[in-house]
């Protein structure tokens, strides 16, 4: 089965409010994700909690990535190559649940987001395609 890799990748950019974890993002976010992964070890979490900036100095993050991590700006981290399953180690270390962390990316409060989920979630209408507006 032949596929046009360029068309395949281009379509991902047409989904509103979504950063698909493509190879390009994975390359850009390598150290960001590896740093996040390091927080799975309790001894690393302790060092991180004591001094975040000092901990980050051991990892080859760009200035932008470092600022986004310190600000817990998850949308920015996604844009800079973070993947949500890796970034989950950061918000888990902060004691946040998936719902709490995920809602922070939507511009809604945790309560508003939970209400939306309880009412059946975000409807797909209008958020499937930027170009097609459907």
């Amino acid at each position: 089965m032949t596929r046009d890799i360029h068309a395949y990748l281009a379509e991902f950019e047409d989904i509103p409010g979504t950063r698909v974890y493509t190879a390009a993002r994975a390359r850009k976010g390598y150290w960001l994700n590896q740093f996040a992964m390091s927080l799975m070890k309790p001894e690393n979490r302790n060092r991180w909690k004591q001094d975040e900036e000092a901990y980050l100095a051991d990892w080859k993050l760009s200035d932008e990535q470092r600022d986004a991590v310190l600000a817990r700006d998850y949308n920015k981290m996604l844009e800079l190559g973070g993947n949500i399953y890796f970034l989950a180690k950061i918000f888990s270390t902060d004691g946040l649940s998936f719902v709490q962390a995920v809602s922070s990316m939507t511009g809604m409060s945790v309560e508003e987001y939970q209400q939306m989920m309880a009412a059946g979630g975000r409807a797909p209408e209008g958020v499937r395609s930027i170009e097609g507006k459907y």
């Binding site: 409010g17 998850y74 998936f98 979630g121 975000r122």
Partner: peptide, 17 residues
């Protein structure tokens, strides 16, 4: 099944699909 854990579109659910 349907779910999105990232970005401004997080929380998407598509019951029909």
């Amino acid at each position: 099944m349907s779910h999105q854990l990232q970005g401004p579109r997080a929380g998407l659910i598509n019951q029909e699909w």
